[in-house]
Design a protein around this nucleic acid. Structure first.
Lengths: 218, 218
DNA sequence: GCCATTTTTTAGACTTGTCTAAAATTATTT
DNA sequence: AAATAATTTTAGACAAGTCTAAAAAATGGC
């Protein structure tokens, strides 16, 4: 059973290693973990010993299947706890991270299974990130309304509900097209209007507009 | 901020140190913590350094006020988490201990406050042990019906509801008097009858009887 | 293809919490 | 009150995880 430190390294490598094997380098891990490169090297040796990563000196590192399973399980726990904190304990989405960092290391299969049941099998955490299932599979993100996206979450335009002419013209005027990257900066509690960042410029839209745009979470 | 190991030692000393100062000895702590006496000595020195315990070589140890506050806060967290696991996540009362041992070390004041709210300010955990409040005060246990006691919990007879003659005779015959120590061994799910242990002998009583006896949790 | 720079690894040290074995202290027995 | 037993402490060692400083390897410029 991996230690807390080992789990954190696996998680960091998981998040960094989107493309191909050995693609993650020591310095990147050190930066993400707020440690020194020498500490990372030590840990990579240990993780390689345990066959949780493939590691070649000076070349790079990536997760093995076993390492991937372990990492996605930690991320699953992290995101389920975040959901719990927001939905049941009145945390706001920006308060949950530090606590979830601690809770994700609690060891109990039953605990996490029951939490999943209790929350009614959520698919995304409060930041909009997908929650891996028990087997470590991350659900392909599906279309939801832009109005449902929380601040801080980045997504891309996937369609519209009502394709009235003047609405499409509005989108065009504001440089929103299929696939356009949209980041929600602020959600105004009063009227649920959104401040968006689109290609480095800012745009404010009403709830009505947001309710007409489908997006996929990145 | 005390480490996890330090917290566990404080908790052990708290549980052992019911009577007077310096009353707890090294071996007792070692036994409770499943460590060696030498490890305990090392830790006591460190805790004394931090003014969490009063410790005199070869004499014994006890908690300072600060140590007491810290310990009861950990116990508060432990028991709130146990309540959560049983009430919300379908754990049974004998499955919760190991998980709560982990959860009690999570550091977040908001978390534990909100958990308290979410559980509607419980006063006792699923084992019947009292939950200390934020200031570390343990509520004097009050009279409840024997029928409300969970298996594993030990209590003492505090009175009866209906003091009909034949009921009091029944109690007398079965050696139950005011102050008699009663431990609930089994609660039969079917009819809620109880198997009790009273002075080393066993007694089975019906739900009706249990509903007529007031007890205080020890 | 060589030199300078950056990245990565090694070597040695430190901290926390644990252990074993031996020494010191306290308690018990006769 | 001395001897034996039990408890407690000290001394030294070890594992995990981190660090600094120096060495080794890779990268990039020209």
């Amino acid at each position: 059973m991996p230690s807390q430190a080992e789990e954190n390294y696996l998680k960091a490598i998981y998040h960094l290693g989107k493309q191909g094997c050995l693609s993650v380098n020591t310095n990147a891990v050190a930066k993400k973990m707020n440690t020194k490169a020498s500490s990372v090297t030590d840990m990579l040796k240990k993780l390689a010993e345990k066959e949780l990563v493939n590691y070649i000196k000076y070349q790079g590192v990536c997760l093995t299947d076993e390492g991937k399973r372990t990492a996605s399980n930690i991320i699953r726990k992290h995101r389920l706890w975040e959901s719990f904190l927001v939905e049941k304990l009145n945390f706001s989405w920006n308060e949950v991270h530090d606590v979830a960092e601690q809770l994700e290391h609690i060891k109990s299969q039953k605990l996490i299974n029951e939490l999943d049941v209790f929350l009614n099998f959520p698919t995304h955490d409060p930041h909009g990130d997908p929650i891996p299932d028990k087997e470590g599979n991350v659900q392909k993100s599906q279309k939801i309304f832009l109005s449902q996206i929380n601040p801080g979450v980045s997504c891309s335009c996937a369609g519209v509900k009502d394709s009235a002419d003047n609405f499409l013209q509005y989108l065009d005027k504001n440089n929103i097209a299929l696939g356009t990257n949209i980041q929600v900066i602020v959600k105004e509690p009063f009227d649920e209007s959104l401040i968006l960042k689109i290609n480095h410029s800012t745009l404010t839209i009403s709830k009505e507009i947001a309710n007409n745009i489908y997006v996929k979470i990145n």
